[in-house]
Simulated scan of single mutants.
Amino acid sequence: MPDDEWHVNAAWARRLASISLVFVALQGAVGLWQGWAAGSVALIAWALGAVPEGLAGAVVIWRFTGARMLSDTAERRAQIVVAVSFWLMAPYIVAESLRHLFVRHHAESTVIGIALAAIALLMMPVLGRAQRRLGTRLASAATAGEGAQSYLCAIQAAAVLAGLAVTANWSGGWWLDPVVGLAVAAIAVWQGFRSWRGDDCGC
Rank of each mutant, 00 (worst) to 15 (best):
G39P: 10
W170N: 06
G202R: 05
A148W: 02
A188H: 07
G35A: 02
V111S: 10
L88G: 15
H105P: 08
H100L: 00
V22D: 03
T143A: 14
S150H: 13
A25D: 02
L43K: 08
R14F: 03
I114F: 11
Q34Y: 02
S171A: 14
A183G: 15
G35P: 06
G198T: 07
F86A: 02
V160E: 10
A50K: 01
A83E: 08
V84Y: 00
V179W: 00
G172V: 06
D3Y: 09
G66H: 04
I93V: 15
R129T: 13
V166R: 13
V60A: 07
P91N: 07
R104N: 13
V51P: 06
T110S: 15
A130T: 02
M124W: 04
I61Q: 09
A139Y: 07
A58F: 04
F86R: 06
I112A: 14
F86C: 10
A183C: 14
H106L: 10
L88H: 01
A154R: 12
V126Y: 08
H100R: 14
A186N: 08
G66R: 10
V189H: 01
L134Y: 01
W87C: 15
T110K: 03
L134D: 08
V60R: 09
L32S: 06
R129Q: 11
G181E: 08
W6A: 12
L70R: 15
A188V: 07
V166E: 09
I93F: 02
Q131T: 09
V179S: 06
E5D: 12
A148N: 02
A95I: 11
S71W: 00
A56N: 04
G173S: 03
Y92K: 02
Q156I: 05
I80S: 12
A42Y: 00
M69T: 14
V60M: 03
G66F: 03
L122D: 05
P125E: 05
R137E: 12
L122P: 11
Y92A: 09
A142S: 11
G128H: 00
V103N: 08
A107C: 05
G147S: 02
C153W: 00
A11Q: 14
N9R: 13
R63V: 04
R99D: 07
A38L: 03
V111R: 13
S71F: 01
G202M: 07
A29L: 14
Q131P: 10
S20V: 11
Q131D: 12
Q131H: 05
Q149H: 14
T110G: 14
T143D: 03
D199L: 04
A183I: 10
A188F: 05
W87M: 15
V82C: 07
G128P: 05
W174P: 07
T136Q: 15
M123N: 11
A45G: 15
V103G: 03
A185E: 01
D4V: 11
G202A: 09
G28N: 09
S97E: 02
R194V: 08
I119L: 09
R63I: 00
G113T: 03
A188I: 05
R133I: 11
L101E: 09
D4M: 01
A183Y: 01
T136G: 15
